[in-house]
Amino acid sequence: MSLEARLQNVFRDVFDNDSLVLTDDLSQESFADWDSFHQVKLAIAIEEEFGVKLSTEDVVAETSVAAIKAGLLGKGIAA
């Protein structure tokens, strides 16, 4: 599965919404459900799915799909 598809599954799981479609501009600002609590759940689910460890800075700063994808690519996850 592509990074995009895996990340979409993570979002669907965390936001409990099977029809959620991932777009790069989806972010904490544009998506009302994406509060700090969901940010933590996302961080946990991303660590589980991709087997990576997020830094404090990653968790705080990666508040958009674009930023999360960039972060994962930076950690060597294949697109």
Binding site: S36, F37, Q39, V40, A43, I44, E47, E48, K53, L54, S55, T56, V59, V60
Partner: peptide, 14 residues
């Protein structure tokens, strides 16, 4: 430690 600092998550998710 990271998620403790960010969100007072305890214990680790795993």
């Amino acid at each position: 430690p990271v998620l403790w600092q960010v969100a007072k998550q305890y214990p680790a998710a795993a």
